[in-house]
Computed example of a mutant assay.
Amino acid sequence: MRNKLVEFKHVSFRYGDDQPWVLKDCSFCIYENEWVAIIGHNGSGKSTIAKLMNGLLFPQEGEIYINGQLVNDTSIWNIRKDVGMVFQNPDNQFVGTTVQDDVAFGMENRGFAREDMLKRIEQCLHAVGMEAYRLTEPHRLSGGQKQRVAIASVLAISPKILILDEATSMLDPKGRQEILSTVADVQQQHALSLITITHDLNEVTQSERVIVMNEGEVWNEATPRDIFKEKTALRKIGLDVPFVALLTDELREQHIQIDNEPLNHEELLEELWTLHSKM
């Protein structure tokens, strides 16, 4: 059984005493080596959850544990060794004049030995396919390349948890797919827990588990396949469902019997091919 890496216990949060609650009595767990997608409409509390995990914010009520350690003022620097974040706009994370300087920054702050830093820079840039750009100025990179460098910079400090907070939202579809492929490979190579906070349904379908937020509360958590069975309920809380799920419903209305819930085009084609072979 996998160990818990993130645990929210009855967490509530608001941005000021006179403000409405952004999170209300939230409880959930995320386990080691797990890919979890957190989705919800704008204002549902998704990004606040990410900031609470990293100690950028603290809850007014409830407790948060990262790798068994309570998140508070005393533990915050230890917590941030375990939790790495990549934000929507990578330009906000760059501090170095070259790609390798940026990857080195977090390690320098933590007192890594120079020999270890050089080795990690090479390894992390290789992991995201950016080793050829190590002497490039970050502002000269494309959006997708910048996100790859941001991921490499986080990987360099060896976190147990990698959070992508809308990290693909500014990219075109090809760039999004490249970053998703990169993070999937990185998760396997580095045995990370991966948390993606996203509106991109392609990211959601690739995850192991989905936590759906609605008006600051955990509305549901299940596998992507089970979540997207609830098409009508999802629409009621302002969320989309994958095109393949809609197409599957249309086919069923035309009396084409599809037994399972395909998540992508390949699975739908497999269902149709299986049905055809039985005829």
Rank of each mutant, 00 (worst) to 15 (best):
A156S: 13
T48E: 10
I30N: 04
N33A: 13
G68A: 10
A50P: 03
K229C: 09
A37H: 05
G68R: 05
P242A: 06
I163M: 01
V83F: 09
G144H: 01
N202I: 01
A222M: 10
N202D: 14
F8W: 03
I49K: 05
S153K: 02
G175D: 05
F243C: 08
L162C: 01
D172K: 00
H139V: 13
N42F: 04
F13D: 14
I38H: 04
E32P: 09
F58V: 09
I258A: 03
I79S: 12
L56V: 13
Q206E: 13
V183C: 04
G175P: 00
G62P: 12
R252M: 09
K231F: 00
F87S: 08
A167F: 01
T182Y: 00
K46S: 08
F228Y: 12
I256D: 08
S181Y: 02
V218C: 09
F243T: 11
M279R: 14
G175K: 05
V95M: 12
T205E: 04
L171P: 00
L180F: 02
L275K: 14
A184E: 14
K174T: 09
T205Q: 04
N42C: 05
R80N: 12
L268P: 14
G62R: 08
Q93W: 03
E215C: 12
T98G: 09
D172S: 01
H199W: 00
P262Y: 03
G111Q: 07
H41C: 06
D17M: 13
M213W: 04
L180D: 01
T74D: 15
Q188M: 11
S158G: 03
N260C: 13
R235W: 06
H255Y: 06
G129K: 02
I258M: 04
D226R: 10
D259K: 15
V183F: 01
L247W: 02
E253R: 12
D73K: 15
F112N: 13
H126I: 07
N54F: 06
A245N: 11
G40A: 04
V11M: 10
H276F: 14
S193D: 06
R2E: 14
D165I: 00
I64C: 11
R14Y: 11
A152T: 07
Q177N: 12
V244R: 00
E63V: 03
C26Y: 02
N92F: 07
Q93V: 03
C26A: 12
V128M: 05
V22W: 03
Q257V: 15
Q145D: 03
E34W: 06
K4S: 15
Q60Y: 10
Y15M: 14
Q100R: 15
E61W: 06
V95L: 12
P159N: 09
N109T: 07
R2M: 14
P224A: 10
E115T: 12
P159W: 04
R2C: 10
E7D: 14
W35K: 10
Q206W: 04
V6H: 08
I195P: 00
S44C: 09
R134L: 12
S12Q: 10
A150G: 09
D91Y: 11
A37C: 14
N89M: 08
